[in-house]
Design a protein around this nucleic acid. Sequence first.
DNA 1: GATGAATGAGTATTCATTCAT
DNA 2: AATGAATGAATACTCATTCAT
Lengths: 191, 191, 191, 191
Amino acid sequence: MPRTEEQYKDIREQRRAIIKDTAMEMFAEKGFAGTSISSIAKKAGISKGLMYNYFTNKEDLIKTIILDGFNIVVEVFDANKDGKLTREELIFFVKETSNILKANVSFWRLYFIVMMQADVIKLIENEFMDFLMPLLTTLIKYFENQGVENPEAHARLLGATLDGISLNYVVDPEHFPIDEVTDLIIDKFLK
Amino acid sequence: MPRTEEQYKDIREQRRAIIKDTAMEMFAEKGFAGTSISSIAKKAGISKGLMYNYFTNKEDLIKTIILDGFNIVVEVFDANKDGKLTREELIFFVKETSNILKANVSFWRLYFIVMMQADVIKLIENEFMDFLMPLLTTLIKYFENQGVENPEAHARLLGATLDGISLNYVVDPEHFPIDEVTDLIIDKFLK
Amino acid sequence: MPRTEEQYKDIREQRRAIIKDTAMEMFAEKGFAGTSISSIAKKAGISKGLMYNYFTNKEDLIKTIILDGFNIVVEVFDANKDGKLTREELIFFVKETSNILKANVSFWRLYFIVMMQADVIKLIENEFMDFLMPLLTTLIKYFENQGVENPEAHARLLGATLDGISLNYVVDPEHFPIDEVTDLIIDKFLK
Amino acid sequence: MPRTEEQYKDIREQRRAIIKDTAMEMFAEKGFAGTSISSIAKKAGISKGLMYNYFTNKEDLIKTIILDGFNIVVEVFDANKDGKLTREELIFFVKETSNILKANVSFWRLYFIVMMQADVIKLIENEFMDFLMPLLTTLIKYFENQGVENPEAHARLLGATLDGISLNYVVDPEHFPIDEVTDLIIDKFLK
DNA sequence: GATGAATGAGTATTCATTCAT
DNA sequence: AATGAATGAATACTCATTCAT
């Protein structure tokens, strides 16, 4: 009996996930340019040719991986999509950032490593900005409403700080005191 | 008659400088793996073959560049070598960080990119840690002396924040308001 | 649908044979170092890249060719694998050498020319010794059992003589009286 | 005081000799293609550019070396030019072969390597044959006078044996017992 | 859908040779 | 005569991508 359309779709999606996971691991390990399509295929247990059935090319593969990560973040902050931010929402936002990191360190470790690569950044520059700017605008508005002197500097500093924390945690999750540091940010920025 | 030894030395040093500057710019622009030796040669106005007269290979070139910059950093923070930090010294430290970044964006861009690449990290891992750990220790001591509740969290947060700022500035130097953000850090952490 | 495993195997074996034959001819004509991979590819009617699908590198190619020849010889002398040699076996051995040469002069002509090249010898030194030493040891034992005064010199001389005959025959098969010379060796060494 | 013309000529000739000796050693060690002009220059203690003042190019250098050696050989066997061979002369001939080999292994190593390369053979083929054929004829006559059944087979076998010995010795001069083997030939063929 | 053979442009690197000084 | 910087063509090898089956 042939598989149902549903089953085929499931197989495809599982396989896509395997390819993406494998690729992310290898991109993190050897760099984007240093990882060949055929080595990913081999490790993922499929043929080279079949890779192109799932992703149109190498660029598509890395973009998909990166955008998947964006989407997770975007989804989490869905609550703020109205463009307005209360103090409580922002505190949630900050805490949630650390929770997401802690919940899946290994994924985000790879994610950061992959994202930092110059050639990768170049590929997703536009999408990255499309994702980042609304968040930044919302933050700036928040600090404006708080009546601080330099709202953009505040917003940029908070963003940069969250980047720095993520990076430090992800590089050395065992030693970086993420909970204390998170509390400290809230204390410094949001009290 | 051949040129004098002095003349040959001058030629070599000038050429080496041109190659390093050009390479750094391109590595920062396109990444290490994404920049070919021949494209550097072309941009530097010399032949591909001559590159190998000045650097034994691509790895030698990137290492030389990284270590050159590393020496600059070590020299700048030499003042803090006593291991004790006053508030004024720390403020100087923070400001100097942004000054160094601004003074040579393209180098620090490359520097960050390189530090993120797993296989390149291994090349200078040891030297990097030898440089970083004393700074962290000194920072922790500073916050201990300030009598804050969680000195390590403060030190880590400040370090992470400087990382995040550096990263954000380096990725988009035209838009990131580094001076305002720097003032804000001083205001938040060191007042 | 992909080809069957059988089909792929057939394709690979045919291609490998074509590449090896072409390479041997060119190595004999222009020397190992003087023959480029891409020129072999062109003459074999395939792309440069495909060469590396069949042989991991140039060294692998020459080694495969040389070891193919060893294996033919080893197989023929399989009968002597017990390490003991009767006079009859040794006579068979000597006669078989000339028979093998006569049966495929053109192959062995190329083979000798390729084998004589210093850079080639260097690459297969170990394998060559692994192949040669057992034969030599067996020969020495034979002459020991015959009670001659200097068994190693006898064994070496017989080996060198067979080399010289092969070389002379292969260089000029039409004029070199291989049968008479073979009979003479048997007469001189094995009576 | 400037050097005399004579002195300049002496210096040139000494330098040419040094270059040739150095080159021969390196060609024998690493093969012709595997030895770079600049490595010869470095080992000979002169600049790369000056090499071209002494030899018009790499081919000129190898040809000069080969023809030099060829002249040595012709000179040594001049004594046998009368076409008649006594047993004592033939024994001297055989012994002299091994003496010449032993006296300059690295040259003969190179010489054999070069003779094996098809395109180089064509350069000196004629001179080589002019030298070899009379020797063969003389040998055949010798065995005729000895009253052996098949004089040509004897002459060919002796020639081939000397070739084989030369080859084996030159390939592995440290282990090949050339003196014992030489004595054995004399014993087998010339007693 | 699936395979892996096949392509060709691209990469780092080497080296004989030239040339300004 | 002497130097070594400079060139550029050539080489081994890689890899994203295509395609016949």
